[in-house]
Every structure is written in C-alpha cells, then in structure tokens.
C-alpha cells in the first residue's frame, strides 16, 4: 500500500502514480500530445493533413474496438476475441455486401447477430463454466479465425459497397474522416450504457466485488455474460466499418486489435482486476497507442527497432499505470 499522506517519503514514481491515478485519461492525452510533438520536431513532414486524418481514423477504429473491452474489463473479465470477431465481421461484410449498396441492412443484421452469438459463447464459457477468461477467449478466437479460413478457403471474396465505403472514408472539413459520424452513434450508446443505465452501474459493482454484488441481489452471471455479448457485438460492427475502410477483407486482418484494445484500455486507466475505469480513458488510450505507432513509423525506424521501442514503451507505461499490491504492508 502506498502511504499517500506522508508526502515527504513519497518517491518520484509514487508521485507520478498519484497524478496518473487522478485522471488516467488526461495523462494519456498528455503523453500522446508529447509523443506527437516529438515526432513533428524530429520529422517535420509528419505534420500534414493526411497523417492527421489517418491518426483520427485509426484512433476511432481502435476506440470502437476498445469499447466492449472496457466494459468487459470493468466487470472483471477479459475478451481476446475482439480481433477475431472484427476480422470475421469484415469478411462477412465484404461477402454479403458484394459491392451492392442495397445489401447494407442484410449485412448489418448478419454481422451483429453472428458476433453477438460469439459473445454469448464467451460469456457462457467464462461465467457459467468457470474457465479462465483469458484462456477460453483465446481458444474461441482461434476457432473463429480458423473458421474464417475454412469458409473462405483463405481468400475472402467481395467488396464493401461504394456508398458504405464513402460513409467511412469521406472527409469532413477536408481532414476529419466520416467514420466520426459513426462515432456520434457509438459513443453516446457506450456512455449511456456505462454511466447512466442500470446495467452500467451493476457492471462497476460486479467488477469491484462480485460476491458483494451477488449478495446484494444483482444477477451477476447475467451481467457478466451481457458484457461479453456487448463487447462482441461492438467488435463485429467495428469489423464491418473496418471493411469499409479497407474496402476488401483478409483473414486475421484485425488480429492485432485483441491486444491493442487491451493495452489501450489499461493505459486509459481501467484496472485489469476490474471495478474501475472509464470509456473516456480508453479513447485517450487508443489515441496514445495510435500516436505511438505513428511516431515509430514516421521516424522511419527499421521494423525490428520499431518493435523493440514499442515493447519498451508499453512496459514503461505499465510501470506507471498498473501495479499489483505488495505482500508486505
């Protein structure tokens, strides 16, 4: 336990910790701005409209993908199917849309239903059967990925429809991607669910103290399963939007989102052990992750050096953010 009252004795790390814990979202934005500043200072050409558009685009996609992960983590779970469900969503989208605008509604229904189904499976396996969330969602994610290969023979067909592509990639005011318009729908829904609905309040309570929540009359299994369903549904929809952005789909195209969403959510101040966290923080975390990747690309470092830098920065962020308790008090 950190002794916050004895200011004298506080080490530098503890001070930084205290500052971050007050508002992880603010801290993530500060670090992101700093990183972008450094990037521009070192590579002035990095400051251009298309780079900013791409940062906004990727941040939006990652923050949509992180929405469900945030809710699942707050409730004390973990969802590694985010990437697989996104890829599957994208593949379904290109296959059913097949370049025809008229197929939009059909596509949306199939994507949402199938991903909700995977979410339900995740929920039942972790909550009802009691398997460790991390392992079982990884196993399910593998199955989903393999299934996409089997169904498409490894090379998905079709394209997103022109109007749909336009709705994702057009530019507003010359630099804001129109994907932001989808944000106007998704963000309010997530904020409502998490902060103003009964479900959201229950999610926080369940994540903080599952046992107490149950004894206080909350149906904890239902709440936890629902978080997985919400997460998978949002991932599926994000995958559909991703298909609009990429125009065509590949198997495992969004695999990286599983871990990236997790790191974004953690950096945004959500605890791995559940009970605390905000979606604002996750959005800021997503921005930080995207800016970091952008910086490593802009500095035109070689791929291996980029990987090493990424790993070191992630570990440093974790040291600042997420430490477990010591045995001795």
């Amino acid at each position: 336990m950190v002794q916050t009252h004895s200011v004298k004795k506080m080490t530098f790390l503890q001070k930084v910790n205290g500052f971050i814990q007050k508002s992880p979202a603010r801290m993530a934005i500060i670090i992101a701005t700093l990183l972008y500043g450094i990037t521009v200072a070192m590579v002035p050409t990095a400051l251009n409209l298309s780079a900013i558009t791409s940062i906004i685009m990727l941040t939006l996609l990652l923050s949509f993908a992180s929405a469900g992960q945030t809710i699942v983590l707050i409730a004390g779970g973990m969802d590694f199917t985010v990437g697989a469900v996104m890829s599957a969503g994208a593949i379904i989208t290109t296959a059913i849309m097949n370049g025809q605008d008229g197929n939009f509604v059909k596509t949306l229904v199939v994507v949402l239903l199938s991903s909700a189904g995977i979410g339900l499976l995740n929920g039942i396996c972790t909550v009802k059967i009691g398997l460790p969330a991390m392992i079982v969602t990884m196993a399910i994610s593998n199955v989903v990925n393999r299934l996409t290969y089997v169904l498409t023979d490894g090379s998905p067909l079709g394209y997103a429809s022109p109007a749909f592509i336009k709705s994702v990639t057009s530019k507003i005011l010359g630099f804001v991607p129109s994907l932001a318009l989808y944000g106007l729908v998704i963000f309010p829904i997530v904020f409502y669910l998490l902060y103003f609905s009964r479900l959201g309040k229950q999610v926080y309570l369940v994540g903080n103290n599952d046992n107490a929540a149950r004894l206080n009359g909350i149906n904890t299994s239902k709440v936890k399963i629902l978080t997985y369903v919400i997460s998978a549904t949002l991932s599926g929809f994000t995958g559909m939007l991703g298909a609009g952005y990429m125009q065509s789909a590949k198997c495992q195209m969004f695999d990286g989102y599983a871990f990236n969403s997790l790191i974004a959510v953690i950096v945004g101040g959500t605890a791995l052990s559940g009970g605390v966290g905000t979606y604002t923080g996750s959005i800021a975390g997503a921005l930080l992750m995207v800016v970091l990747t952008n910086m490593l690309t802009a500095l035109s470092l070689s791929q291996p050096v980029r990987n090493i830098a990424m790993g070191i920065v992630m570990i440093s962020l974790l040291i600042l953010y997420n430490r477990e308790k010591s045995v001795r008090q």
């Binding site: 609905s197 009964r198 309040k201 229950q202 309570l205 903080n208 103290n209 929540a213 239902k222 009970g275």
Partner: peptide
Amino acid sequence: RDAIFHLRSVEENLTTGLVAKGNLA
C-alpha cells in the same frame, strides 16, 4: 468480502439496492 465496494464511491455504495432491482437498460 461481502458488502463494501471499496473502489466505488459512497453514493454508489448506498444506492446498490436501487441499482440491483429493475430493468437493466
């Protein structure tokens, strides 16, 4: 173990009864 949500605010702790009962949405 059974009652306090120590990370959540006093208000959230007091209103768990209201939160527990009713429609989730």
